[in-house]
Deep mutational scan, measured.
Amino acid sequence: MLDDRARMEAAKKEKVEQILAEFQLQEEDLKKVMRRMQKEMDRGLRLETHEEASVKMLPTYVRSTPEGSEVGDFLSLDLGGTNFRVMLVKVGEGEEGQWSVKTKHQMYSIPEDAMTGTAEMLFDYISECISDFLDKHQMKHKKLPLGFTFSFPVRHEDIDKGILLNWTKGFKASGAEGNNVVGLLRDAIKRRGDFEMDVVAMVNDTVATMISCYYEDHQCEVGMIVGTGCNACYMEEMQNVELVEGDEGRMCVNTEWGAFGDSGELDEFLLEYDRLVDESSANPGQQLYEKLIGGKYMGELVRLVLLRLVDENLLFHGEASEQLRTRGAFETRFVSQVESDTGDRKQIYNILSTLGLRPSTTDCDIVRRACESVSTRAAHMCSAGLAGVINRMRESRSEDVMRITVGVDGSVYKLHPSFKERFHASVRRLTPSCEITFIESEEGSGRGAALVSAVACKKACMLGQ
């Protein structure tokens, strides 16, 4: 009897593995994704193909990295998701002549009506938060230079001027797309009239992360975010950046690689679950690469896999709870928690219980395998993109072996128990001629924006502006 049951459990697990095998990517698959990513990057950089390229390769006008001589107080704003952060950054000489960066910050959550109302409502709310922060720190009387981390696709015309191309991540505030974001912020500050600010720089969160990590390690020339969304930036040779005049030196390019796949480059790798996630998203047909990796989508992918296993009578005796059938019910943090389970399955059992399920031991094991399959594919897909960037940098610099540091931020990278190990191992397999160091950014977005502002202020002083 026991043997029969054991055989049935083994057969069930084997069927589960057959279904989950769809998520496995072979090294040849990853090399294919990497080569296609490089081709799209090239198209994004070139003037004649930029418009139709899915990977936009947006110039950021960040050319210099901090040298350690900029000092002063800077205000930093960070808008990239449902939370908005205001930070005071003091850049100065530390002990023994070292450079020191001290920060104080406060988080504000953005109400739904500000995210989806008008641009005026959104930026009025942001300036209200700045006003509140300055009151708390008794700094209303000071006109501070301000660095703005704005983590949406922007076409820069200068370091302090950028046109919002399109909202992502659930934002829909009308009247912002096609307009200068810094102008919208300046107008809102003017409307309030109770404080003055000098907006000197606007950067993407990947750029802010790279600059913040450069402060720790001067070989950091790539910034990457794996959180709600997924994106990367890197220092490109100016001669390859056709959208900006000049051939000397390097400029940081914001790849906006989340949109890779929007022209069909990933079609052969998309599964039924991916198509369902895409169809029910706020932007169907867009940001397809990001939807395979980002935390906004990972939990939902797992939920759809679990429903398939229920329908195949391989999980929960073929019956799903009402909660499990509800879109968004299986949160991405559950994926991390399930994979963090120590082996007694308590954590998995508790999560499934909150979803109205009474799982068996085998159910718990199957749910864990589903989570591992989805998150491992995410790590491997992400590795193909980064390997594409790094191999490109090595080739354009004609280096036999390139040493490089990548600064990384984002909740999936930082909080998932195995993502970074799987990701690092896969990147290294795909970049055999590179020695890569990964560092995690601390308060990256805010500190990085302030350091970019410090560079901009120093330049302005040198130019006598």
Rank of each mutant, 00 (worst) to 15 (best):
D4L: 13
M57L: 04
G464C: 06
D132M: 09
E435I: 09
M210I: 06
Q465K: 14
Q138M: 09
Q286A: 13
E177T: 08
G318S: 08
E120R: 07
D274L: 03
V374E: 01
G80E: 03
M57H: 02
A370C: 06
T362Y: 09
P66Y: 13
W257N: 02
C252Q: 06
F148H: 03
M8N: 08
E196M: 05
L2R: 07
A119F: 01
A425K: 12
W167P: 03
A387T: 03
S340N: 09
G72Q: 06
L165M: 08
F150S: 04
K459V: 02
E319N: 11
E399N: 14
M37V: 05
S418V: 10
I351P: 05
V71N: 15
M381K: 03
M402W: 12
A232T: 12
R36K: 14
G448H: 02
L271Y: 12
P59L: 03
G147R: 01
M235D: 09
K32R: 12
G285C: 05
T206M: 00
H156M: 15
G80H: 07
D363S: 08
F23G: 07
V154S: 03
T168F: 01
V55W: 05
T342I: 09
S426W: 11
N231Y: 11
S100A: 06
N83G: 02
I211M: 14
C364Q: 09
T376Y: 08
S280H: 06
V199G: 02
N350I: 12
A460S: 11
S433V: 12
L451N: 00
H424C: 09
M41S: 05
A379V: 06
E95V: 09
A384M: 06
Q26I: 08
C230G: 05
L77E: 06
I404D: 00
A379P: 05
E319Y: 14
V455L: 15
F269L: 10
N240R: 07
E319G: 14
R397I: 11
E312T: 13
S418C: 14
A282G: 14
V16R: 12
K190S: 14
K142D: 07
K190Q: 05
E268W: 11
L58F: 14
D194N: 08
L309V: 15
I293F: 01
R43M: 10
N254S: 00
D247T: 15
R303C: 03
R392E: 07
K12I: 11
L77P: 00
S360Q: 09
Q98T: 13
C233H: 02
Q323D: 14
L276C: 07
L315D: 01
C233W: 04
I348W: 07
G388M: 04
P66R: 12
G162I: 03
R155W: 06
R377V: 05
A119Q: 14
S109L: 03
L270P: 07
G388P: 06
Y349G: 11
M393F: 12
T228L: 00
E95F: 11
L463N: 12
D217W: 08
P145I: 11
I436N: 03
L30H: 09
E17S: 12
S418W: 12
R429F: 10
I225R: 01
